[in-house]
Write a protein that binds this DNA or RNA. Structure first.
Lengths: 131, 131
DNA sequence: ATAGTACCAGTATCTGTTACCAGTTTAATA
DNA sequence: TATTAAACTGGTAACAGATACTGGTACTAT
């Protein structure tokens, strides 16, 4: 299942642990800053490279909706997100994932449907309090 | 309703018509190429500027999931999309939009939910035939 | 040991998009 | 219709996030 010929380097391990240990949905830059606390010599290119290979290996998710840069999620299982359009925060939602929609769509259209995504937009509680 | 102090220039009108008259979900570059057929002097910056103002005015939609660049949709009403992960094509889906999810989520969480998006991913019929 | 290759840090480059500026066009008013 | 203020324009430079390249290092299997 996993992509062959992949090594678990110190750098990759650190990046993966950072993502698994945060509930935020960090940007590559944030991961880079965190990784440098552990491995001060790590380069930004390495962070991007490993984020991509981890995505391809299905160990993390890339979230790239609505802004010019990606965020990453250490939880590779499909789940829905809420995006605050005021502060940009991204949070997980505790909603059941409607996998049956994929099957229905596939049968109705003849497309091959592999996955789907859903995000909700609005203002988070913090931003609502401020206004 | 409309954003104040907005002028309907020739450029904006052409861009809007291009988007209304296509079922594809074009990129800014494609819109630029089409617009130049009508207005050879139009600049890429103007295309981007007007795409943004049209989005803010609610006349078009920006679709920016899953790739490094945005696509635009001349139909501003919320609807769901299918994205082919092989060829990048984007197509509209004829599924009912589940607005009730927004209300449910808002009541369950205290968030203010303004809208939501859903995309399905997989292979389109053309790409399935090829493989 | 040796070869082969996945990986690294550092840096240059790429790409989609935005900002700037001086001149033009639009639309509201007289 | 003429005037006018400000929104808009084309052209270009700058920007940011991401990727490609380079020369060198560290695994891994023979």
């Amino acid at each position: 299942m996993a992509v062959a010929n992949q090594r678990m380097t110190r750098q990759k391990k650190v990046i993966l642990e950072i993502l698994k240990n945060t509930k935020s949905h960090p940007t590559a830059d944030w991961v880079y800053a965190e990784a440098r606390k552990v491995l001060p010599e790590i380069s930004l290119g390495t962070v991007y490279r490993n984020l991509n290979t981890l995505c391809q290996a299905g160990e993390i998710l890339e979230l790239n909706y609505g802004s010019s840069f990606s965020r990453f999620d250490g939880n590779p299982q499909n789940h829905y997100h809420f995006v605050c359009t005021s502060c940009g925060a991204v949070m997980d939602l505790d909603l059941p994932v409607m996998v049956e929609l994929e099957q229905n769509l596939q049968e109705a259209t003849g497309l091959r449907v592999t996955h789907h995504r859903m995000e909700f937009y609005g203002q988070c509680c913090t931003c609502l309090d401020k206004s």
